[in-house]
Nucleic acid binder design. Structure first.
Lengths: 189, 189
DNA sequence: GCCACCCTACCGACCGGTCGGTATGCCCAC
DNA sequence: GTGGGCATACCGACCGGTCGGTAGGGTGGC
């Protein structure tokens, strides 16, 4: 349970990192915008990198939990794919800044954290892959395009979302989620 | 026609920017790795930003030329989409570093250059969009998913390519290009 | 009831080091 | 001899991080 000060620092950091990039944002800038002092920031975070990692952690945790929940529903392959994609698109659209930072600054993770991250992403990827492969094996999906390429395409789209999705645009996240899921499922028939 | 020194600086900069990020790469590092001096770098480039922008310019110019060439062939909508995607995937796979830098550091462009860039990307986007819309109007493609979403998905996949494509992986760029084009076209039927 | 003690939360001046960029001049091809 | 193509020495700004200190609330001994 983060304190109000800690939460404020994270919120401001996400916004600044998203709009200017991690390196281009100084710690001074963050504390000024968050109306706290450097002492406060370094009281809660061991380093600037730690702050960045905390942003990642919150995002990854939420996404993994979401996927596990959907898998647990025991739906058909098509319904599972639709649910996973839709929920991923919606949660990403609601957190464009976090996702933008995440995608852009991923390479900054240190050795250890990168290893942890890869393991978690691999798990995520393979869970999704298994759903698609099962759908293909059962004849519910076409096998023309290999399952791994399909998964790469589907997840890639979501990562690119921050590049063009605008919260004040014409389409709601839910609409968009429907369209993207429709398209991917159409490609699987 | 760039001199050998200039080309060397660009090549090295692309490699370093791709692996460490723009801000995390110092000018010192670039000149050392390129075996030139700071004087040489600042002789050819007005600033570090200029160097980055030159990388963008080379990439965008090549992509736009490619698309114009394909449009000029006068193929059917499906064939045009296939050609555009395939050639984009292949050229991106051959230039993963440039693309990685491009996608990751886009936000660093200054006001003016950002405006220019948006205009060029818009042109690119709309050219592709027009092909899809024509295909839908002619009944060659399904209209279930709006054309703009399809274009966003297709181009998004390409931008994400550097995240997972490995030149030494199992699939050749041409194979991958085929699979991606297949999938997008399947989604359009 | 109160005081000594401590602990968490926070402050902000300051530090060593690095950064992008510049000023100046050599040198060789033409 | 002169100008393009560099080399070298150097600058001031700014960066992430530190550190001695403080404010204020809880708490146990008496």
């Amino acid at each position: 349970m983060p304190s109000a000060t800690e939460q404020k620092i994270i919120d401001v950091a996400v916004r600044l990192f998203a709009s200017q990039g991690y390196d281009a944002t100084s710690v001074q800038e963050i504390v000024k915008a968050a109306e706290v002092t450097k002492g406060a920031l370094y009281h809660y975070f061991r380093s600037k990198d730690d702050l960045l990692f905390e942003i990642y952690r919150l995002l990854i945790t939420a996404q993994s939990a979401d996927m596990d929940r959907i898998i647990g529903l025991g739906l058909s392959a098509a319904e599972t794919v639709r649910e996973i994609l839709a929920s991923l698109v919606i949660s990403t659209a609601e957190r464009v800044d976090e996702t933008a930072v995440f995608v852009r600054e991923l390479h900054r993770l240190g050795e250890d954290r990168m290893t942890d991250f890869r393991a978690e992403r691999r798990r995520y990827h393979e869970t999704f892959l298994a759903v698609v492969e099962k759908g293909q094996a059962d004849g519910e999906f076409s096998s023309v395009v290999p399952a791994d390429t399909v998964v790469r395409i589907a997840l890639g789209v979501v990562n690119q979302l921050p590049m063009w999705f605008r919260p004040d645009g014409q389409k709601t996240p839910a609409q968009l989620a429907g369209e993207i899921a429709d398209f991917v499922l159409a490609g699987l028939r």
